[in-house]
Design a protein around this nucleic acid. Structure first.
Lengths: 353, 353
DNA sequence: TGTGCTATTGCAATCGATTGCAGAGCCGGG
DNA sequence: CCCGGCTCTGCAATCGATTGCAATAGCACA
């Protein structure tokens, strides 16, 4: 027990003090380095079989657990992945998150999720994650400012996007096929006989907002409808209140649309609010289609017809993409696109001329 | 530039390599320890003012960022807090989480959230968090097994509970006043004239399930109603499907209840399903009260009357409790209880005899 | 001018694990 | 019987930051 130094005392008080690799080594009469090797799958082959067994036995007899901080310091890898989320409270996000976390956990990584919305600058948050030594970043932030991307690239940090794509398409991403989703929505309405279809578009500085709007307009053209009968109102944020306001503007147009496609379920609920405020019935007077199929939109009145996106798959794909990069494998497919699916419920019906 | 050693090469390849405390020291012609002191708020007073300034200038000229792994190794504190969640996808959880994270972030801590549901043993997850060197744990797990608690106590790790209490009341906790919530619900129904009130109880091995049930029964007694007119059906999990089954059993009783109190909004939605399956109207035939006021229950048909719990406050309180422990302050109040509030919407109406 | 302080700074050990290199022991072939 | 080669293990440096102790300088006061 001569291990206590005279000058510097152990910073962690006498309490607990988990066993270290040295304790295991002492118990087995081998050098710490041998223990390290025996306990590392990659180096185990360098140690004699019986010694490995003895060490493993001693290790879990002592309840030894690897100290990640020490390992991280030495190897330069922390086993931590940062995830930047726009808003944890958004019901659409958890499935994505759990897809990411599950996949990453399986490979021994832990995830630090930070909510950008509440705190200050995204830049600063990224810096703090970098200080923590994260090995990679998953960005699900809605507003992907250029400087953040640049910052990450400067730090030579593997970064992947989820539910987003950057304008230049430089970063690998996993996202839903927004254009296809809007096509499903518009085709569905056209098939029901609708000819005047409005769109409540999301924020245009967010890729989903911009791409869904473009998809909507393209689908309208493809259906041979005139753009003048397909008014678009964009919002500043994906909120129910914003959706309500935009829908009110849409409904105030000379030729009122008989159907409204929202860029988002939250916005669609706002459309419901607007219809109620105008004394209009859904779907009787106006049909509504949402996007995302977030939880419980099947329970609202009327149950919302919406475009379901593969959120969990998106998270998993993003994790895989990141793992590829961490392993040095540059995946062939940098942009994974998930196919959406139209879920028809009660908020859309045929338009009678 | 004689800093490259002959034998062991730097593990982090030439790429990037963030500046270290030594680089800053070299640039200022001082010893690394002086830099460390100058950059630490607690030790700054030991360094001459002008030197501090010079060092700070050099630090952010170089873009120096503290290496948390190294600091953690030396000090024995990682600045990481583990949060065990029952199910991230549960819409009720995000507000709690964000309350926790915001408060902890402000103090320089980062949170690692792990979803217990998906992965294997809770025990093992805790072990992995401990290996990561978390400084403390917030447990929001629904099924708080004794061994997990014991495990944490063995590790001498500060632990707080959120939205939960342990049977023995040993661990500090922040939770809603479940009994008060049930009292609000029952009193509301009684005031509306209901005399036969059923309860869909949550899992009895979860504190919310057990305490809400007890609260329900106590309130029934307090209202002078007979227990035989207040049937209770407990479920195994907080899911919509389980709520449906339990409600069907309740509705099959000889004297059908005219109102049902669910332990949870999710269960309440299941009750809606059951009513629809039996061709009964809500609130016409049966009134329903939920619990938690999760997002969008105001949008379902009919809008759900429910007991709102202060989820964000709960998270904040838990964080404060944990910070107290981390700072060595044993807070006087170990069990913080948050007052619930009844939100009356459309799922409850007066019962006409 | 000498003594005693205090305010600063440097020194070096240390946290726990990893890993390149060196050396020991052993085997079989020539 | 010797040597090349292989397997296994030990040694020691190292990652970056912190901190108790020692040392120095500067200053005041007698």
């Amino acid at each position: 027990m001569k291990r206590t130094s005279p000058s510097t005392r152990s910073p962690r008080a006498a309490a607990s003090s988990r066993p270290t690799i040295k304790d295991v080594a002492a118990r087995c009469d081998v050098h710490p380095s041998t223990v390290s090797r025996a306990l590392s799958p990659a180096m185990k082959h360098l140690v004699a079989g019986d010694v490995v067994e003895r060490i493993q036995a001693a290790a879990n007899a002592l309840g030894y657990r690897l100290n990640m901080a020490a390992k991280g310091l030495r190897t330069g890898r922390s086993g931590l992945i940062g995830v930047l989320a726009p808003d944890i409270a958004d019901p659409g996000f958890p499935p994505v998150l759990s897809g990411i976390a599950d996949h990453l956990n399986a490979e021994g990584y832990a995830t630090i999720v930070v909510d950008v919305g509440s705190k200050g600058s995204e830049q600063d948050l990224v810096d703090r994650l970098i200080a923590r030594g994260v090995d990679g970043l998953v960005l699900a932030t809605v507003s992907l400012r250029d400087d953040v991307v640049k910052h990450c690239l400067d730090a030579a940090l593997p970064v992947v996007l989820v539910n987003r794509v950057d304008a230049a398409g430089l970063l690998p991403s996993a996202a839903s096929d927004d254009a296809a989703g809007m096509r499903l929505a518009v085709q569905h309405l056209v098939a029901l006989g609708h000819r005047r279809i409005g769109h409540v578009a999301g924020p245009q500085h967010i890729s989903t907002g911009a791409r869904r709007r473009a998809g909507f307009e393209a689908s309208i053209r493809a259906a041979g409808l005139s753009a003048s009968h397909a008014p678009v109102e964009a919002v500043e944020a994906y909120t129910r209140a914003a959706g309500r306001e935009a829908a009110l503007r849409l409904l105030a147009r000379r030729t009122r649309p008989t159907a409204i496609v929202a860029a988002n379920d939250l916005l669609a609920l706002g459309v419901y609010d607007a219809l109620a405020a105008r004394g209009l019935a859904c779907p009787g007077d106006v049909s509504v289609v949402g996007h995302n199929d977030m939880p419980f939109v099947d329970m609202v009145a009327p149950p919302l017809t919406t475009v379901r996106i593969a959120q969990r798959d998106m998270g998993e794909a993003a994790a895989r993409l990141l793992l590829d990069r961490l392993a040095g494998r540059e995946a062939a497919t940098d942009h994974i696109v998930l196919a959406p699916e139209l879920i028809i419920r009660g908020s859309t019906i045929a338009y009678e001329h």
